[in-house]
């Protein structure tokens, strides 16, 4: 409805908000109070967490200590590098395979009708069912893990790219042809820019799915990387160490999510400006 208001060219009001008593709106005070509540919770956890059975829980200062241990022994760095290596390879193959396959399926109706249902099924069904088979075929190796990350990540990309190619505005292609563009030029100037936002969305989903796939792979396919470190720690009831690994995973997840958001925003630039109308 706001869109309609702006579309008819009348002075909109949204830049100014009615003066009103603030009830929990964003403000410095709210931010500080939230910070204070978290500080209080962490302090309370640290004080009372010491009395809880250490096999079932931990507390902040123990977690910090464990982080120091894991960092000094080099275990954390090894695990992190191992995980990132597997994830990076898996995502690389995802990109290499997902773009052309997605493009082909979106472009050629015949391929879409033949293999589209399979892509949809593999997109929606739980991929984890293939883990034992991967172990059977490729052993408890990095190869198995990379393949699993690839399987987790590739279908969202294929699905979105195909969707993008299908939804290229046909009139744009016709305009290009009316200006004498040939097939290749049309792809270059119309199709490709049109599907960039879809590639962005697909890549973002692929990264998130790839990370989940990585953790699952490191749980099931040999104990390795961050997932392995996490499982080792919890098998030994070292909850302090387990929390360290989880926090590292949060950090990795955060950085990857930011990267995904940036990619989505950057590739979808023209779309965002269209949405503003």
């Amino acid at each position: 409805m706001t869109e309609a208001t702006e579309a008819n060219g009348l002075a909109p009001l949204p830049a100014v908000r009615p003066r009103r008593k603030r009830s929990g709106g964003p403000g410095a005070l709210t931010g500080l109070s939230v910070l204070a509540i978290y500080a209080l919770l962490i302090a309370a956890w640290d004080v009372f967490g010491r009395d809880v059975n250490p096999y079932f829980s931990s507390y902040p200062s123990a977690i910090v200590r464990a982080a120091g241990e894991l960092a000094r022994s080099g275990e954390l760095a090894t695990a992190l590098l191992g995980s990132l290596g597997v994830l990076g390879q898996g995502l690389l193959y995802t990109l290499a395979a997902g773009l052309p396959v997605g493009f082909a399926i979106g472009r050629y109706q015949f391929l879409d009708r033949t293999f589209g249902p399979l892509v949809t099924i593999l997109f929606v069904a739980p991929r984890e069912v293939f883990v034992p088979l991967l172990v059977l075929w490729f052993g408890l190796s990095d190869a198995s893990r990379v393949i699993f990350v690839f399987l987790s990540a590739v279908f969202p990309l294929i699905y979105n790219v195909a969707d993008g190619v299908r939804s290229v505005n046909q009139s744009h292609a016709e305009i290009a042809q009316a200006y004498g563009a040939n097939e290749w030029q049309t792809i270059q100037e119309v199709t490709f820019p049109s599907i960039l936002p879809f590639i962005g969305v697909g890549a973002k989903q692929a990264i998130a799915r790839g990370l989940t796939g990585l953790v699952a792979a490191e749980f099931f396919i040999g104990v390795s990387g961050l997932g392995g470190l996490l499982q080792k720690a919890s098998a030994l009831y070292r909850l302090d160490r387990a929390f360290v690994v989880i926090l590292v995973l949060v950090a990795v997840g955060f950085i990857l999510a930011r990267a995904g958001d940036l990619m989505e925003a950057r590739l979808g630039r023209w779309r965002i400006s269209e949405r503003a109308y």
Partner: peptide, 22 residues
């Protein structure tokens, strides 16, 4: 929303499967 946002962010970006051992 503001109060929960750090936790929400953490759970949003991290694979929830990682909590299975816990």
């Amino acid at each position: 929303r503001r109060l929960l946002s750090p936790l929400m962010m953490a759970f949003y970006v991290t694979p929830r499967l990682a909590l299975i051992p816990l």
